[in-house]
Every structure is written in C-alpha cells, then in structure tokens.
C-alpha cells in the first residue's frame, strides 16, 4: 500500500490544476443549461435533462481524463522528479498504481460535483413537471457509476499509452481508443458484412482486444427500461477487469523503461 501517499499527492497535484476548474465550470454550465432547453422540448423535460446531463458528465470526464491523465507520467519525467520518487523505497509498479489511483480520486471528486449538480437540476425539473423525482434517480445513478468506470478505464489507457509515448501521442491514442471503443460492435458488423472469413477473424480479434465501451454505456437505455443488476454487475466487472489488465501492462512496460 506504499502507493497511497503517491495517490494522495497526485490528487493534490491534479486538484490544483486550473484547467480542471475551467472544464468543471463548463460541465456545470452545460448541465444547468438543460433547464433552459427543457422549455423547448414539448413535454420531454425530464428526458432532456437526463440525456444532456449524462452526456455532459461523460464528455467532460473524457476531456479531463485526456488532459490530465496523459500528462501524469511524462510530467514527472520532464521535471526529473521521477528520479527523486524512484530513489525512495517505492517500486515502479507502485508509482503507476499511485498515479492511477490519484487521478481516479480526482475524477471521483469531479464526477461527484457534476452528479450533485445533475441531480439538483433533475430534481427541480421533475418536481416542476409534477413527476416523482426519485423515479429516475436509481437508474441515473447506475449510468453515472458506469460513466465513472469508463473514465477510470480511459485513465488506465492514458497511463498505459504515456508509459511509452509522448503526451500528445498518448492523448491521441486515448481519444482514438474512446472513439473506437464505442464502435467495436460496428467493427464486428463490418467484418460480417464483407463476407470474407479472413476479415471476419480480424474484426473479431479486434473486438476482443479493444475495450467495448458500449457495455459501460447505459445512457441510451436507462430511461425507459432500467437494466437488471446482472447486466449492471457484469458491465462493472468487465470495466474493472479491463482496467486491471491495462494497469498490469503499464506496470510491465514501466518496469523496463529507461530514463
């Protein structure tokens, strides 16, 4: 558990980053703007608040992850502080874990702040409509949990990419992974459409290797039909296992890295 001080230090470091606050303010403004848009929605206020709120949290979470996550490791290398850290009785793998958990805590705090704003807006809107505000709360909370898991997965990916590439490249890789992760089923379907066995096997292999981020995306289905705990639990487990896999890979690469 020697990575804990490092995690807390990372939390302190990232929370002081001013860009974080700018992004957070934008996110809160986006969530709150749903109140204005709701009036134009012809009786669909609740839906609009939920969709806009969840999408804003997800998109701004992604921006924070890419901005902060891809810089975490390289900043230490550029500032040469990594020599100072690694000279202490701390393993390289613990350094990676510390960075990951530190940013996870930061993202947790930010997601919590955005979620409080989101629930407040949802509460106000649904009360105004005369609907029971608690109807959508549990389902929205499930979607938010999986959005947070998706952020963690992308954090792990950002750290993984930054162990062997520059911040710009790892930002691009992480963004690419996010986009492709939401298209993994389409890739599989493209393979099927070609009708060629070889391409089908390639797309299937890609489908298994790439993260299936649609499994962590309940935003589109939660409103009408709450998902079962089985689906939610398996999606949660999938996300956590993928994160663990990425962290193990990051630690392996970082162990062999020369500065």
């Amino acid at each position: 558990m020697s990575f804990l001080p490092l995690a807390l230090n990372t939390l302190r470091e990232t929370i002081r980053d001013k860009i974080l606050y700018v992004i957070l303010v934008f996110a809160l403004m986006m969530i709150a703007s749903s109140v204005l848009l709701a009036d134009l929605s012809l009786g669909q206020q609740g839906r609009l608040v939920v969709d806009l709120g969840l999408s804003s949290i997800s998109i701004f979470g992604l921006i924070i992850t890419i901005f902060v996550g891809t810089n975490l490791v390289n900043k230490e290398i550029d500032k040469k502080t990594i020599y100072l850290i690694l000279s202490k009785p701390i393993r390289r793998s613990e350094f990676v874990l510390g960075k990951f958990f530190g940013l996870s805590l930061t993202l947790g705090v930010i997601t919590l702040a955005m979620s409080i704003c989101f629930f407040a807006v949802l509460w106000t809107t649904l009360r105004g409509m005369g609907t029971d505000p608690f109807v959508w709360f549990p389902t929205s909370a499930m979607a938010l949990s999986l959005i947070y898991i998706e952020m963690l997965l992308l954090t792990a990916a950002a750290i993984f990419f930054s162990t062997f590439s520059s911040p710009v490249m790892s930002a691009m890789f992480t963004l690419g992974l996010y986009l492709i992760g939401h298209m993994s089923y389409d890739i599989l379907n493209f393979g099927k459409l070609t009708g060629q066995v070889m391409l089908q096997q390639v797309t299937q292999a890609l489908f298994f290797v790439l993260p299936d981020l649609e499994r962590l995306n309940l935003k589109n289905v939660l409103i009408q039909a709450p998902v079962s705990m089985d689906v939610f639990g398996s999606s949660l487990a999938y996300g956590l296992l993928y994160i663990a896999g990425l962290l193990v890979l990051s630690m392996l690469i970082f162990e062999g890295k020369e500065f």
Partner: peptide
Amino acid sequence: LLTFGHDAFVADILWLQLIQ
C-alpha cells in the same frame, strides 16, 4: 456511427430541431 455512445443526446438535439 458518429454519435459515439451519445445516441439519446443527439436524438434530443434533433427533437429540439424538429420542433423548431
């Protein structure tokens, strides 16, 4: 293909556009 998981949100935007 281009909504990247934000299908419901894009549908809402189109809904607002439709009303206009």
